[in-house]
């Protein structure tokens, strides 16, 4: 268990643009930017489409979900439980440069990938400057 995890479990949010999160666990998120999109990669192993929810509300991206422990396994049958169960909610403030109508999400191999398109004017343009 890293300090980050420990810190999060006592209720501190991790990042600058992130609002305090609620829930019992926090999926790890990578965020990167390309010329046309901002991409979030969220680790949600074992979760199905029905168990995760992606919502954009007023410039904020909300990720919610719940992972339930298997019901058919009795607690006393567990030798080891390291995976975390319960609900999570993380939210990220989106910059003005993105077009919130262009949000796509895909779930594959336990990874939720969210791609948010940038507005036309926010994309880098190459401008040729003539030298006199």
């Amino acid at each position: 268990m890293t300090i980050v995890r420990w810190w999060e479990t006592i209720g501190y949010p991790m990042g600058q643009a992130e609002q305090p999160a609620a829930g019992t666990w926090y999926p790890a998120v990578d965020i990167y930017e390309t010329g046309t999109e901002i991409v979030l990669q969220v680790e949600v192993p074992g979760m199905t489409r029905e168990q995760v929810n992606v919502e954009v509300d007023d410039g904020t991206l909300h990720l919610r979900g719940e992972r339930k422990i298997e019901k058919d396994v009795k607690e006393e049958s567990y030798h080891r439980v390291e995976r975390v169960y319960g609900s999570f909610h993380r939210s990220f403030g989106l910059p003005d440069t993105v077009d919130t109508d262009k949000v796509r999400a895909e779930l594959k191999d336990g990874m939720l990938e969210i791609r948010i398109g940038k507005r036309e004017q926010a994309k880098p343009k190459q401008i040729q400057v003539g030298i006199n």
Partner: peptide
Amino acid sequence: PAVDIYENNDAVVVKAEVPGLT
């Protein structure tokens, strides 16, 4: 990777979280 291990009458089951791995 986080691992859960449980046992039932027939088998021991190990589940490891490896998101994004093939």
